[in-house]
Computed example of a mutant assay.
Amino acid sequence: MTQRIIVGITGASGIALGVRALELLRAAQVETHLVMSRSAELTLHYEMEMSSAEVKALASEVHAVKNIGASIASGSFITEGMLIAPCSIRSLSEIASGVTSTLLSRAADVVLKERRRLVLMVRETPLHLGHLRSMTQVTEMGAIIAPPVPAFYNRPDSIDAMVTQSVGRALDLFGLHSEAVSRWQGE
């Protein structure tokens, strides 16, 4: 079976994270199923020189955020799991509560109930207690919180390098190890 990962992109700042995930997964020949929130489409306009159509063209398949009848809304549709990059606090909170209002949060809920890997690249700072409680809740449910915190040991020379390193490390959590990631080799 082909490896298959759902990629969710929300409206939190950091759309480049989701775009880079799609690029790295395509290079690894992983089948991707993309779902973008409406806010993500708006944020894309402010943060990148790409159109929504260009981002969607990076995915193997695109699902409308309101299409709760999509393949990724069912546990019988086999995937390795789901990466949400970036993950807004709103999406995190929906997932934590189990009250899903879109395909994005429904797909994440399905991944959790099927005990598959859910990685959330949460983009918010500072955090209040409600945010931290939601993070604790989804962690207790089986998700992994992986904020895009840049590593500096590899001496990144650009934002692009930091994005690639953060996304590559998130993909490591699915057992997908990109050559684009700088690995610590010890002293």
Rank of each mutant, 00 (worst) to 15 (best):
V111L: 14
I68Y: 13
E94N: 13
L58P: 01
M48S: 05
A53G: 06
G69A: 15
E54R: 02
R90D: 15
G98F: 06
L118M: 01
L42G: 13
R90P: 07
L58R: 00
L42N: 14
E47Y: 01
M50S: 05
A85D: 09
V119A: 01
C87V: 10
L103P: 05
A59W: 02
T43Y: 05
V122A: 05
T102Q: 12
S74F: 08
S74T: 14
S88A: 07
L112G: 10
H63T: 04
E61T: 06
T102A: 11
L92I: 09
S51D: 04
M121N: 03
K66L: 15
T100S: 15
N67T: 12
E80G: 11
L42A: 15
E54M: 04
K66Q: 15
A107K: 05
E80Y: 10
L44K: 00
V65A: 09
P126L: 03
K56H: 01
I89P: 01
A59C: 00
H63V: 08
L42P: 06
A85K: 08
H128I: 02
A59V: 02
T125V: 13
I78A: 15
L118S: 00
H45D: 14
V55S: 05
V55Y: 01
K66M: 14
R116C: 04
R115F: 06
L104M: 12
V111P: 08
T79C: 07
V62C: 01
R116Y: 07
M82L: 15
V110S: 10
M121L: 09
C87T: 13
A57S: 02
R115A: 10
A73C: 07
E114R: 11
A73P: 04
